[in-house]
Amino acid sequence: MIEFFHVTKIYPPGIYALKDVTLKIRKGEFVYITGPSGAGKSTLMSLIYRGTRPTDGKIFVRGNDITGIDNPAKLRREIGIVFQDFKLLKHRTIYENVAIPLLIAGVKKEKIESRVNYLLNFVGLFSKRWAYPDELSGGEQQRVAIARAIANDPYILLADEPTGNLDEEMAIEIIYLLKEINLKGVTVVLATHSTEILSLFPARIIKIDHGEIVSE
């Protein structure tokens, strides 16, 4: 599903974010990317959704070489992304936030309505669909972000430190939700430095330090 071949990423003025990384994530896997702050976890995630280009090496997503693509819009419509800071549109309602990826994908109005209602029920926020993000707690906002990320039935769900801004109870809730999504066949890649999460929900762990994979 995701393949890295000798991928190196150097940020100016010569800082190595990733050094000769080769890895393979299979379809339907639940994978943790872990390591200390600044290890290169976010860069690795960003390379998968083409938020940045590798300096060297090749990246394949679902068999397609995404290394040189100029327009990543199509790729991003097939990947769900969840961030630590939620990245919700503040002046849009919860309903609209979840509906936007469907609009972008060109889904018809009637289908959008039923899909958004289903997703909001799935994350337990249907009753708050007309609220604005600022009216919700951190955990609720992250649930909205997850609903939005899976709106277009993605093959891959990338979660970059999704529990970083949440307390332990809410963090566990979010990981449960991601596990549930994984059970539906979605490949989940979760970047975290929380050891509690790793011990509570065991799965494959890729550990990065100073831009290199140190253990798997």
């Binding site: 819009a73 991003r76 549109l89 972008i104 994908a105």
Partner: peptide, 15 residues
């Protein structure tokens, strides 16, 4: 900020 979020969601330049 809003435009960057839309790009992450796969919005093309026309949208």
């Amino acid at each position: 900020e809003e435009i960057e979020i839309l790009k992450l969601l796969g919005a093309d330049s026309i949208f």
